[in-house]
C-alpha cells in the first residue's frame, strides 16, 4: 500500500542502502536461548568475510561472557538465515553463502539452554 501524500511521487532517502556502508554490509547475529545478552547484535562486515570468522572472531567477543559459550560444539550448531533453516559453508564468504545486506543469522547450540535452563 502506498503512502498518501499531498503531492504525487512522495519519496525519501533510503538511509541504510548498502552503498552507504563504505564497502561493508550489515549482518545481524543472535544466539538463541541465551537472552542474558539481551538483543541480537548488528555487525558491519565486508561481504568477503569468511563465514568461519563469525565463529572464530566475532562470537567470542560478543558472547563469551556466557558460561555456556565454552561448551558450544560448533559442529552441532544449527543456523537460521532470515528465519529459514540454513547450512553455511564455513569456508565460503558471507556473500558466497547468500547472506545479503541486513540479513539476520540465529544460531542454536543443541543442549545448551542458558542459565538455570531458562533460556537466559
Amino acid at each position: 500500500m502506498p503512502v498518501q501524500a499531498l503531492k504525487p511521487g512522495y519519496k525519501g532517502e533510503v538511509k541504510d542502502a548498502l552503498a552507504n556502508f563504505h564497502g561493508n554490509q550489515l549482518v545481524y547475529l543472535h544466539w538463541a536461548d541465551h537472552l542474558i545478552m539481551a538483543f541480537p547484535i548488528a555487525l558491519p562486515l565486508p561481504p568477503t568475510t569468511p563465514f568461519r570468522a563469525l565463529i572464530t572472531d566475532i562470537a567470542p567477543n560478543a558472547f563469551a561472557m556466557h558460561p555456556d559459550f565454552e561448551k558450544i560444539d560448533w559442529s552441532t550448531v544449527t543456523w537460521q538465515l532470515d528465519r529459514k533453516p540454513f547450512t553455511p559453508d564455513l569456508d565460503k564468504t558471507l556473500a558466497e553463502n547468500g547472506i545479503g545486506h541486513k540479513s539476520a543469522l540465529v544460531f542454536t547450540a543443541p543442549g545448551l539452554m542458558g542459565l538455570a535452563g531458562a533460556s537466559a
Binding site: A5, Y10, G12
Partner: peptide
Amino acid sequence: HYRPLWDT
C-alpha cells in the same frame, strides 16, 4: 527520520 507527507 522522515520527509513530511505534506512537503517532500
